[in-house]
Design a protein around this nucleic acid. Sequence first.
DNA 1: CAACATCTGTCTGTTAGTCAACACTTGAGT
DNA 2: ACTCAAGTGTTGACTAACAGACAGATGTTG
Lengths: 198, 198
Amino acid sequence: MLQTDCQRLDPRIRRTRHLLQDALKRLLEQRDFDKITIQDITEAATLNRATFYAHYPDKFALLEELIRVSFLQLLECRKVRFDGSCATAFHPVILAVCDYLAELQKSHSARQHQFEAFVEGTVIDQIRVILLEGSQKHPVERTISPELIAATASWAIYGAAKQWVNLPDRIPAEDFVATAAAMVHPILMSGVVSPVHS
Amino acid sequence: MLQTDCQRLDPRIRRTRHLLQDALKRLLEQRDFDKITIQDITEAATLNRATFYAHYPDKFALLEELIRVSFLQLLECRKVRFDGSCATAFHPVILAVCDYLAELQKSHSARQHQFEAFVEGTVIDQIRVILLEGSQKHPVERTISPELIAATASWAIYGAAKQWVNLPDRIPAEDFVATAAAMVHPILMSGVVSPVHS
DNA sequence: CAACATCTGTCTGTTAGTCAACACTTGAGT
DNA sequence: ACTCAAGTGTTGACTAACAGACAGATGTTG
């Protein structure tokens, strides 16, 4: 919830949240999200049910955090493979989205519409946040707000990645990333006034 | 400490003790017991140092519990392979001791005398307790106290097993168990008045 | 329909774990 | 000899997690 990324938080809290996330993760490998009760989760996490509500208002909040955290972990892995140059900084983001969707497609039957929609929203929002953070690190004078650009680009990336995973014969993710990046890059550059860029 | 076998104990207590035992177990794979501090253990267990003292007076107490628990786990595995007949009930115990010592020999340099002596004492005591429990389940009239018999037999079993592991070319543990059982069985039968036994 | 079971969300008092102190011991170093 | 660093064992205030209860919602089943 609040303080999710977090620093020096009470170890008990980190432990408990990790236990809950891990329990949900394991249960999702067995059955659909809507067939999982909070009791199931807390039992699998060896925690008291009341403790759950001290951390999340409902199971959707836990799911959201689980998605966020595991997506970020994926992204961290992808990042090390790229240089830090500004122009290609969002390549790993695209790659992470591709991998995440590919992983999701493997492990889940596509029939959980409510679940999928929720995942979708969470992932897109996370992409948006990441892009926004990136643009704040390298401020550029522009006529379009960074917020709008981040939002647009995040949907574009997700849409492109989703198209890619649904192809019957996919090209390698790394190759696809180059194509997608070529499409998305103009969005990020739109409205830039000063042409200062490496 | 108290309530080790235990039943419905506060989940936090079971979790914490398990975390500490597991941490010590992992650290023992890396370095010798006397090179491990309580700080190391609590750090590896993601617990506060003060919490340690709420459960164990010192690291030896933790080690003792670790040995006890892992030995009992080993024993449980061995037990299922045997029938429940009274005459051979202690076969799995001998086998468990053999396996435990063999495991220990593999994973530890034999130079930690203090450590080895402590393990030895703990294991023998555990054997004694198990034998004593067994004799209490099947009370027989005897001229020698069950306590003395259990103590004697436990040392005999440990001694035999230790001799076995130190042989340069060991026979299979299962075969050795039969021999050892033949040696130890008379101890258990000594002083029996009524010859009632299946 | 009523009876029933199950899950939810909330609340209470109690207990375990955290944290930052503390004084003490030990050993290495210069 | 003296410091300095690092580990030990203890304390008390704070807080997270526990057990167990509760009413209400949901969804069976006869």
